[in-house]
Write a protein that binds this DNA or RNA. Sequence first.
DNA 1: CGACGCGTTGATATGGCTCAAGAGTGGTGG
DNA 2: CCACCACTCTTGAGCCATATCAACGCGTCG
Lengths: 225, 225
Amino acid sequence: MYVTAPLPATRTQEIVPSKPNITHQRTMTIKPGKHLFLEGDPADRIYEVASGVLRLTRIMEDGRRQVIAFGYPGDTVGFPSDGLYHTDCDALMPTTLVAHRRKTLESGEGDTALHQRLLQAALREISAMQDHFMMLGRKSSIEKLASFLMALTDRVGDRLGDFDQVKLPMTRADIADFLGLTTETVSRTFTQLRKSQIIAIDHINTVIILKPLTLRCIAEGDDNI
Amino acid sequence: MYVTAPLPATRTQEIVPSKPNITHQRTMTIKPGKHLFLEGDPADRIYEVASGVLRLTRIMEDGRRQVIAFGYPGDTVGFPSDGLYHTDCDALMPTTLVAHRRKTLESGEGDTALHQRLLQAALREISAMQDHFMMLGRKSSIEKLASFLMALTDRVGDRLGDFDQVKLPMTRADIADFLGLTTETVSRTFTQLRKSQIIAIDHINTVIILKPLTLRCIAEGDDNI
DNA sequence: CGACGCGTTGATATGGCTCAAGAGTGGTGG
DNA sequence: CCACCACTCTTGAGCCATATCAACGCGTCG
């Protein structure tokens, strides 16, 4: 049903260590389309994204897909539960990661400061997911897309004169599966925002936010523009 | 819009300490309808539910509500992010709690075993929320309700001869706001499951699962009954 | 050049929402 | 003990937002 087919599992063998000769290997690179881990894999590592973008997904047997999150630089992915990963994770572009032992999070042995950082990342993750709930459960398609664009712009947007600009490394299908919509609805909603002069679209994957305040109002559900 | 109005804030003053004379107060009781904390409150405590049921909610300005989770015995609520709570929390019935200092989770000073337990609870929470995402974003109303009933039955159901039985301490509106539906749709879906002889309903708030396997299939999206 | 993947747009279908009415259910006070 | 009231739940009718099905354009790659 969903265009983006579950890819055949190509995993760790595809990960290219950046500094192959150091004993305590921690930094690595992953190529677009390659999986960092799959749902059900033993979760021995937790990863901090240094550059690039990751995609965390869950897939039902019949192919329905939910994008749980996109992992941007500064994000931490791969939190274990019962020692396993509970999502698939792959890269949307060449992505560099710093890997940490699961023990660093779970027992705190060794690097206390790192343990703290990973723990805080887990707590932020819980908070971010709560936002996402409201979006999935209670917002209209235009509110969903506006929320998504605002969140991404706040996080990784660029100032462009009077406007904001944000690059979208993911496909419309990814956005749809993140927001609980179809690609068609996402596309129509982009068009609607574009025709309302709230955004402009440059080469499909770059969005210019012409009216950030208006977009934020839409995201919050202020229907009186 | 939603029937259950945001209640006036009645908070900690309503919490009844069970053992008022002990210095290191940790166990407490909260009455139905009373708030344990509100979104934006400083998050100085993390709570383990010992008995009863809590409700974690988020509310938009226009009244749209999302139930983030129900807190059953064994669950931990109140994970802080930036030192604040990010949901409201109130009780659906008389509920007893064990309170822990935020520091116990964050710094791990003192009780290492407890620190471990709270950390694991946070990781389980992340995993549980990922399930919830799939439900909110990609499931039909009947799949949502079936998932909800199965999860609750697995967690707190009773064996009743050949059947399973589960009590629902929350209203239809709560279930609707948890599943991203309306009360009418929840009610109609209950009726549909009842007419299909998959469940029976006893006094509104007790559900008997007549065909657990069928219900589980529906929850997973196996449409071929 | 042809094939494919992705995005857009159009036409139509439909699942869940909205609005409305009525049927339990429980609590309260006379 | 009953009458009343407030609240929740259920059911019906109609509608609307989004899904579905389909066609096509565009860019990329072999």
